[in-house]
Amino acid sequence: MHISLTVNGKSVQADVAPEELLSDLLRERLGLTGTHVGCDTSQCGACVVHVDGRSVKSCTVLAVALQGSTVTSIEAVASAAGLHPMQKAFHENHGLQCGFCTPGMVMSALDYAARNPDPSAESVRHWLEGNFCRCTGYQNIVAAILAGAAAMSERAKELGK
């Protein structure tokens, strides 16, 4: 079936099979392998991307259902100017080890920051219910998200001036 959608700011036309998942579309068809698949029960969150501005599990969305949608994956988070403040915060807080859960964590964290004007460690830990990490013990991920959210709000303030 033919769909047209926007992926990472670019218009994409694709003939997809009905059973093709968004994670398949990104990884196999578009070569955007930053989106990972870590489970088959829609729990682990390694595959989190944004669809129309909200974080979703791309392993649990049919590509064919995304006609006209806007999809953002980890590959589009950094800019020409460098890492996004949230990515930078993960780097500076040692919020990643093996890196496999990291793209999903960052995409989830961006949604958290967008929706939580008043971030706290407790709410971050709760938010991460759908993002598993087996390496870090989460501690530095929580610290990274708090730092990243603070940097984003700082940047927003500066842009607002």
């Binding site: 829609s42 969150g45 989190v48 599990k57 969305v61 949604d111 759908g130 993002n131």
Partner: peptide, 9 residues
């Protein structure tokens, strides 16, 4: 219900 990503869909 579920987690934030599940709740979004």
């Amino acid at each position: 219900i579920g987690d934030p990503q599940v709740r979004n869909r």
